Amino acid sequence: MSESDEYRANSYFGSLIETMLSLFMSISDGVSWENVISPLLHISPVWGILYTFYVSFIYFAVLNVLTAVFCQTAIESAQNDHATAIHSIMAHKESHLEKIRILFSELGDERSDVITYAMLERKMMAPETQRYFESLGLEIWDVWTFFKLLDHDQDGNVHLEQFLEGCLRLRGQASSVDVARLIHDQTWLISTQGSFQSFVETELRSLRQELRTSKAASPGPSRSPNRA
């Protein structure tokens, strides 16, 4: 063994602590592989193969698995931390409700405590109203659609409770319940429209048949005799 390899052997493998430190530095870029494996190859190629297997196993198996476990645990902890989520919602709920109440008083009629489509359309162009919606995280592109989403009972008026509930629901992301309800409504609508179309087609076919029968049964136009 050359003097340099003998120095490396004594430096990296002189004791158990130094050997463990050398192995740790090998997987954490603390030392080059060439410096550590060189004295091992001079002793026996078997030690070089074992050292290469150790580094490969730690890199591609242990470290990747540990990283995946920590990441998955952090993701599940963030998703399932209901207490933190509820605390955050309750901490900001009153502020959002207060902003919505202020917006309702700006848009609606305080005497009737309702807002109509005409009021909403008239106030939507005001910069103050747009800033209110932006502060709530709402982007209103279609006033009519927005009003219809708030007016659940379809009486043409949006009460304070409907406005608060609608803005809070539209502000957040769609939940599984909302998606399921949308799928149910769409299925019901498709089924109803299909039945209605079948009924209309049957009635039109029957009406067409009756018209043909009446036309065939009716006598032709009579001609008046020619006058001399």
Rank of each mutant, 00 (worst) to 15 (best):
M20W: 06
M20T: 07
L21H: 11
L21I: 14
S22L: 04
L23I: 02
I27R: 05
I27C: 08
S28L: 09
S28Y: 13
G30H: 11
G30T: 09
V31A: 13
S32E: 12
S32D: 12
S32G: 07
W33M: 11
E34S: 08
N35S: 10
N35T: 06
V36S: 04
V36R: 03
V36Y: 01
I37A: 09
P39W: 00
P39V: 00
L40R: 00
L40K: 01
L41Q: 08
L41K: 09
H42L: 05
P45H: 01
V46C: 10
G48H: 02
I49G: 11
L50V: 06
L50H: 08
T52K: 14
F53Q: 10
F53D: 10
F53G: 03
V55W: 04
S56K: 07
S56L: 08
S56C: 06
I58F: 11
I58N: 12
Y59E: 12
F60T: 11
F60C: 09
F60H: 12
A61Y: 11
A61K: 12
A61N: 14
V62D: 11
L63I: 13
L63C: 09
L66H: 07
T67I: 11
V69K: 13
F70T: 13
C71D: 15
T73G: 14
A74F: 15
A74K: 14
I75G: 01
I75M: 04
I75V: 13
A78G: 05
Q79N: 07
Q79E: 12
Q79F: 08
Q79V: 10
Q79W: 07
N80D: 12
D81P: 01
H82T: 05
H82I: 05
A83S: 10
A83M: 06
A85C: 04
H87G: 03
S88F: 07
S88G: 02
M90W: 04
M90N: 09
M90Q: 10
A91W: 02
H92G: 04
K93P: 00
E94D: 06
S95H: 03
S95G: 03
H96T: 02
H96D: 05
L97R: 07
E98K: 13
E98W: 11
R101F: 01
R101W: 01
L103T: 07
L103G: 05
F104D: 03
F104G: 03
L107V: 14
D109N: 14
D109W: 03
D109T: 07
E110T: 08
R111T: 13
D113S: 15
D113C: 15
D113A: 15
D113H: 15
V114G: 12
I115K: 03
I115S: 08
I115V: 13
T116H: 07
Y117D: 12
M119V: 05
M119W: 05
M119D: 15
L120V: 08
R122K: 15
K123W: 00
K123G: 04
M125C: 09
A126F: 12
P127L: 03
E128T: 12
E128D: 10
T129P: 05
T129E: 08
Q130S: 13
Y132E: 01
Y132M: 10
Y132W: 08
F133N: 08
F133M: 11
F133K: 07
E134A: 12
E134G: 03
E134W: 02
S135I: 01
S135V: 01
L136G: 00
L138Y: 02
I140Q: 03
I140P: 02
D142T: 03
D142M: 01
D142A: 02
D142W: 02
